[in-house]
Computed example of a mutant assay.
Amino acid sequence: MFSIIQAAGWPIWPLLLCSIAAMALVIERFTSLRGPKVAPPTLVDEVISVTRSSLPSADVVNKLERNSVLGGVLARGLRAVIAEPRITEEALREAFEAAGRAAVHRLERYLNTLGTIASAAPLLGLLGTVIGMIEIFGSQAPTGGNNPVLLAHGISVALYNTAFGLIIAIPSLMFYRYFRGLVDAYTLELEQAAHRMVPHLMRFAVPRATAA
């Protein structure tokens, strides 16, 4: 492997950096997008059960926020009702939506970088191949005394860059699509959880006085 890297020349080093970055991002996203860390399946039912008769204390809300991404969204809605007992349903929905947008933004972290690597790696490989071809043909003697075996070997070495770029791009694109689908599924779960919590929390809102 090291001899291939040496033979491919300096254009392969950016590809090596891309491969390391892509591997690090995939590991980080696998760790951060685990189900219990984002949206525990029973969390909404537990929150509804705890708040069935009264709103929780600040300590409980803070603990909920640290529980998971979904917990942070639910905690935002609870804080909105606690801070403003006369809150309207529209205002409560806006609080959930703001928290949901911030949560989705955190879930999408580094995905654009991974997608960029998947798109750029083949181009970097092609650039390395073109540079290698230019060097090969530029080093040939103008008198026509070229060795076809050496020329063929030089071309095959230049193509290492393109092959390496594709080796990086294909799994990077697959993981990018997988993580994107995972984030979309979590986004739907956050929306459904907020939809369940709004009517439940509105029971604690103090009705506004209507004008005579």
Rank of each mutant, 00 (worst) to 15 (best):
F2R: 02
A7P: 00
W10R: 01
P11K: 03
P11G: 07
I12M: 13
I12F: 00
W13L: 15
L15V: 02
L17W: 08
L17N: 03
S19E: 09
S19Y: 04
S19V: 03
M23C: 15
A24M: 13
A24F: 11
L25K: 01
V26A: 10
I27T: 10
F30Y: 07
T31G: 09
S32V: 10
R34H: 07
R34V: 08
V38N: 05
P41Q: 03
E46L: 06
S49G: 14
V50W: 02
V50P: 01
T51E: 06
R52W: 05
R52G: 13
S53P: 00
S53M: 07
S54Y: 02
L55T: 03
P56I: 07
P56G: 12
A58V: 10
V60I: 08
V60K: 04
V61G: 09
V61Y: 00
N67C: 12
V69P: 00
G72Y: 07
V73W: 12
L74W: 11
R76T: 10
R76Q: 14
L78E: 10
V81R: 06
I82H: 08
E84V: 10
E84Y: 04
P85L: 09
R86A: 14
R86N: 14
E89C: 03
E89H: 02
L92S: 06
L92I: 04
L92E: 13
E94T: 03
F96S: 07
E97Q: 11
A98E: 15
A98C: 04
R101T: 15
R101Y: 13
L107K: 01
E108G: 06
R109S: 12
R109V: 05
N112Q: 07
T113F: 12
L114F: 07
G115L: 06
G115C: 11
T116E: 12
T116C: 09
A118H: 03
A121E: 05
A121Y: 01
L124H: 00
L124S: 05
G125N: 06
L126T: 02
L127M: 12
L127S: 05
T129M: 14
T129P: 06
V130C: 09
I131T: 09
M133R: 01
E135N: 13
F137T: 06
F137L: 10
G138V: 04
Q140M: 15
Q140I: 12
G144A: 10
G145D: 15
L151S: 10
A152T: 12
G154Y: 03
G154W: 05
I155V: 14
V157E: 14
L159K: 03
A163W: 00
F164Q: 02
G165N: 11
L166R: 07
A169D: 07
I170W: 03
L173W: 11
Y176I: 01
Y178I: 10
F179R: 07
G181Y: 00
G181W: 00
V183Q: 07
D184I: 08
D184A: 15
D184K: 07
Y186R: 01
T187F: 00
E191Q: 13
E191C: 02
A193R: 01
A194S: 15
A194D: 06
H195S: 14
V198T: 13
A205E: 11
T210S: 12
A212K: 01
A212C: 08
A212S: 14
